[in-house]
Design a protein around this nucleic acid. Structure first.
Lengths: 205, 205
DNA sequence: GCTTATATGTTGGCGCTGTAAACTTCAATG
DNA sequence: CATTGAAGTTTACAGCGCCAACATATAAGC
């Protein structure tokens, strides 16, 4: 084994290079227009080389999606650390992190959430990463529940509803059902409007 | 013009036949595996015939998506008529109609919401159909607002949040982030849990 | 240290896709 | 009845995912 392979027949770390290259190409080409052959070419290898490291195309895409879910989980955990005494701030911050990811990397979000990787044929690692991300948000709700700030309802229901709200906003932006916020400021106010409405409820108090 | 064309060189109503055939094939093949050529073959015409009636593939898919949005709008309007005196029942019914469509025709929902038709290259008619569907739900919220049952917040915020919630649940089911309800009963209770939480709000009263 | 085996590349090819161009047929119009 | 234009067909092309056959650099065994 050498630190830097002199010959370039064997790449050395093609698997990671492919993931990295694909991640780079994703925003430009879009998830629909991103071909395995283009990724291979950009990585400087032949069009069949990826098959030595990935079962098929979705296998590669899965790796990218997993890193996306990890970022989501991290956003939740960071929010938890940043506002250790305010679960409400935690929740808002986590939700905004979610929305920010979608805004900054819409094609990544598209890849993660469009369901193209959700079929039965897809791997354990992906669904596991998704579950961890969801649980990270659930933890934040749990924090607030323990401090008695939330309604006396099943934690599961609170989590489900909060998650649905933020995910719904994200998907509506992605799908073009509501107009894309242009600035961070607009995204912030959008988040605040939904957050306040969700916290206080639709019904009159 | 004849009621039934004897010769089959000219089809007569190929445009609608293609939409119909594609709608039929969509559930089996899935939106990813549905090819224009397969649609044409199933419709009994050559693979290039569709191009006499549609600019390209997405143009055909758009027509299908539009009918989906129309069904959504109808679900709202039906809910409005069915419970003329209970905007809350209207809202729940509309939301369940939304979820039912997603459950019964997941591939149609996938087509409508995945964002593949949301790019700039897509037609006016689609976004118009989407807007109408959203406004149909907004009308229901408005009904409740007028009767004073909702919180004293901008109607726009209430609509946005409610829509985000139901859309979020739908997309989480589609994307595999939460497990698919197997029965109508399960879907109903899922809807009720989210609906109640949303109405009363996360925060303790 | 040479041979062998294996992992990791390359090349070529298959069947499929969307789409464009050129050609054919049929119905309607003067 | 001749002409025209709309609506089909055929042919063709480039790109796609994926597979099989081949090439090569590294690792292992003697």
């Amino acid at each position: 084994m050498r630190a830097r392979p002199k010959q370039n027949y064997h790449h050395g770390d093609l698997r990671n290079t492919l993931i990295q290259t694909a991640t780079l190409l994703l925003p430009q080409h879009g998830v629909a227009g991103l071909s395995l052959r283009a990724i291979a070419k950009a990585a400087g290898v032949s069009h069949a080389a990826p098959y030595r490291h990935f079962r098929d195309k979705t296998d590669l895409l899965e790796s990218i999606a997993i890193s996306g879910y990890n970022r989501l989980a991290e956003a939740c955990q960071n929010a938890e650390k940043r506002y250790p005494n305010s679960p409400q701030q935690q929740l808002f911050e986590a939700g905004m992190g979610y929305l920010s990811l979608v805004m900054e990397q819409p094609e990544l979000a598209h890849l993660m959430f469009s369901g193209m990787l959700a079929e039965e044929n897809c791997g354990e690692a992906l669904s596991q990463a998704g579950t961890i991300a969801v649980q990270s948000l659930a933890q934040i709700i749990e924090n607030g529940k323990r401090l008695g700030m939330y309604a006396d309802r099943p934690t599961e229901d609170l989590t489900l509803t909060a998650l649905a709200c933020v995910h719904g906003i994200a998907m509506m932006i992605l799908g073009g059902l509501i107009k894309r916020p242009k600035t961070k400021r607009q995204l912030q106010t959008l988040g605040e409007r939904v957050s306040n409405t969700l916290l206080l409820g639709l019904q009159k108090r």
